[in-house]
Amino acid sequence: MSVVALADAALRQRALAAAGAVADPEIPVLSIADLGVLRDARVTEDGGVEVDITPTYSGCPAMGMIAVQVEAALLAAGLPAPRVRLVLSPAWTTDWMSAEGRAKLRDYGIAPPAPRATRRGLFGLEEEVACPRCGSTATETLSEFGSTACKALRRCTACREPFDHFKCL
């Protein structure tokens, strides 16, 4: 690798590290790297860094906030001329959520999505979701849509606690 290419690779790594540490505004226990919202970074022709992020849902209201925070994090890390690019393809899936992210979610009281995104159709089988508090799988859906677009509301019939479930997508 040339000296320039080496320097660019180092810049890219710094950009990914700085952007990846930004917390999700709605689930602050997760970073955007844990979520898989951070997709890539590159050094552009003008020598600036460009970071790609992708929305979880089309209408996710947190995207504007995330973009601003990523830009601020890149500036704070001393990266040159930072830019944030919103990419739609490939469409985000819960498969991109890291194992560490899933564990953090559970500790936070939110049941993580299934390891491989499955989808129940209108007449499909109900998925098995374990209660993040007591671990029981005797849980039921209260509402398909919870406090944010990415979560559903469930209830544990063992410990009786309601909890959020990060939906599979």
Binding site: C60, E144, F145, A149, L153
Partner: peptide
């Protein structure tokens, strides 16, 4: 309340699609 959240979330999805 649950349907309030559901309808608002679906509204956000549609508005997000419209924006794109």
């Amino acid at each position: 309340l649950e349907e309030e959240l559901a309808l608002a979330n679906a509204a956000l999805d549609y508005i997000g699609q419209a924006r794109s």
